[in-house]
């Protein structure tokens, strides 16, 4: 029983990370109908930035805040300089930009910081939860994810800027007729998405070690999470993440063993696409990726 509970709880923790990365994908998907394949690599790069800031002596939370801010700015900049000019370009050009970003960030991480895994600090390393069921860092991941989600929810639901961003994603033509600066809203969406990805990277790094491929597996799970939740539903992505995380752990523990865990994500992706293309909470089908 303890094994079961602890597997579920650690599934929730890794699921929270998949959910965050899935959410970052969904934020871009809802306004562009495209999956940003580079989401994970951008997050990895951000995590390296955080690592560097800590290495040069910044305290954890200062490095955390600075990294989120830098990632946000970088996200805005990437959208404005690389994607905004392609808004009316053929679909394929944009997909190629995503692949380009994937390669650039992936190789940049390796070129700058090397391919050896780094130990990444957790601010709660010294603490204990007083139980063997869940580790301190896992609990920390869950808390940070929930806090971030709450902030995002409040922002989108209750601020004028959040309203403008939702409107621009939903109906850009009509939004511009309401005076919404649609181009900037898309850029802000990229910024937020990059910031969320950065947080996910910083959370996952102490678990898996920091190396250039750190997010490759996570991205697959995050994609599965977004699909399970419904590719156009931000809360759905998070719930989907939890489901995928827990399922991954239970299937890994009781059915197929850890070697085949990644297959779980693939099977889930295919199953959702076949049986319920709108996911649990979504309204749009994924027609092409």
């Amino acid at each position: 029983m303890d094994l079961f509970v602890s597997q579920v709880l650690s599934g929730v923790a890794s699921g929270a990370i998949y959910g965050c990365v899935g959410l970052a994908m969904v934020m871009i998907f809802t306004s562009t109908e495209k999956i940003n394949f580079a989401q994970g690599e951008m997050a990895t790069f951000s995590t390296y930035v955080a690592w560097t800031l800590m290495t040069v002596g910044l305290p954890y939370w200062a490095a955390f805040a600075a990294t989120v801010a830098i990632s946000f700015a970088a996200g805005v900049l990437i959208q404005r300089t690389l994607l905004a000019p392609l808004r009316d370009a053929p679909e394929m050009s944009q997909v190629i930009v995503f692949f380009g970003l994937f390669l650039v960030f992936n190789s940049a991480s390796g070129a700058i910081w090397g391919y050896l895994p780094f130990d990444f600090p957790s601010p709660v390393k010294a603490f204990s939860t007083g139980t063997t069921l869940i580790g301190a860092h896992q609990l920390f991941i869950i808390l940070v994810a929930v806090l971030m989600l709450t902030l995002l929810f409040l922002f989108f639901r209750y601020t004028s800027l959040g309203l403008c961003m939702r409107a621009a994603a939903q109906n850009p033509v009509s939004a511009s007729l309401m005076g919404v600066r649609v181009g900037w809203m898309l850029a802000l969406g990229w910024g937020l998405s990059a910031a969320v990805g950065a947080v996910a990277g910083i959370m996952v790094a102490p678990v898996v070690f920091l190396e250039p491929q750190m997010m490759v597996g996570v991205l697959l799970y995050a994609f599965a999470a977004a699909l399970v939740g419904g590719i156009d539903s931000p809360p759905g992505a998070f719930v989907g993440g939890i489901i995928v995380g827990v399922l991954e752990n239970l299937v890994g523990t009781y059915l197929v063993g850890t070697d085949l865990k990644l297959t779980v994500a693939l099977v889930l992706i295919i199953a959702v696409l076949i049986f319920k293309p709108t996911g649990l909470f979504g309204s749009r089908r994924v027609a092409r990726v």
Partner: peptide, 18 residues
């Protein structure tokens, strides 16, 4: 030009936001 996923109130708020 309806914002279908927004509430009626949000549609009106949006119009007045600027």
């Amino acid at each position: 030009g309806t914002f279908t996923n927004l509430t009626v109130q949000e549609n009106l708020d949006l119009a007045a936001h600027a």
